[in-house]
Amino acid sequence: MIPIEHILLLSAVLFTLGVLGVMLRRNVIIIFMSIELMLNAVNLSFVTFARSMDSMTGVIFIFFIIVVAAAEAVVGLSIILSIFRTRKTLNIDEFNILKW
C-alpha cells in the first residue's frame, strides 16, 4: 500500500506546477494546459481519499470532473480559435479588449 501522504504530496506538487504555469507562461494554450494539469492534481487526491476512505464517491466525482473538463476544453479552445482570428496572436497579454 502506497502511503497516502506521498500521493497527496505528488498531487500538491502537480497543482503548484499548474499554478506556476498559469502565472509564468504567456501562451494562452499553455496556460490552458496548466489548468488541465491542476484539474488532474485534484483528481489524484480525489482517488487517494476515495481509496483510503473505502468510498466510491470520489471515483464518481472524477467521472463528472473529467466530463466537465472535456466540455471546458472544447469551449475554451473554440474561444481561443475565434480570438486568434481577429488578433492573430496567442499571447495572453494582447487579449486585453475587456480590460478596464
Binding site: L14, L17, G18, L20, G21, L24, S34, L37
Partner: peptide
C-alpha cells in the same frame, strides 16, 4: 515521471 512532465509544461 509525472512531475517531470509537469516541469516540461512549465
Amino acid at each position: 515521471l509525472s512531475v517531470l512532465g509537469g516541469l516540461g509544461v512549465l
